[in-house]
């Protein structure tokens, strides 16, 4: 059975590596993007995408803007986890309205991330 593919979006190389290493160890294939614009290109080029993990504050296009674009363009055929240091309630509410399924607060806890990823890609 083919591995499931996850797109990780964060402007930090180190964060992307942390997520990538966690997911690859659990047999997920991982794509990476530095911002929402790159992510949109990946989404359009990867019809079998299983999940997106996305930061909120990024250059060019942030996570909430990306969610809005995905929703407006009818591209959200997968679940989205927001992985961020942002914790204000209005941001969570906005992400929920735009279709995100989970909000994870940094620092990244690998076990928690993996549990949520496995739940949302089951």
């Amino acid at each position: 059975m083919a591995n499931k593919t996850v797109l990780v979006i964060d402007d930090s190389l180190v964060v992307r590596e942390q997520v990538r290493d966690t997911l690859r160890a659990a047999s997920y294939d991982v794509l990476e993007a530095e911002n929402g614009i790159e992510a949109l290109a990946h989404v359009k080029a990867t019809p079998a995408l299983s999940l997106v993990i996305c930061d909120v504050n990024m250059p060019e296009m942030g996570g909430l803007e990306l969610l809005a674009e995905l929703k407006n363009q009818g591209l959200m055929s997968f679940h989205v986890i927001m992985l961020t240091s942002e914790g204000r309630p209005e941001f969570l509410a906005k992400a929920r309205t735009l279709g995100a399924k989970a909000w994870m607060m940094k620092p990244l806890v690998a076990e928690k991330l993996l549990a949520v990823v496995q739940k949302l890609t089951a």
Partner: peptide, 17 residues
């Protein structure tokens, strides 16, 4: 207390998932 704790996970639609 902060609205969301560092390291925490909030699942938006438990029932759906």
């Amino acid at each position: 207390p902060p609205p969301a704790l560092e390291g925490s996970v909030t699942l938006f639609d438990e029932d759906a998932d």
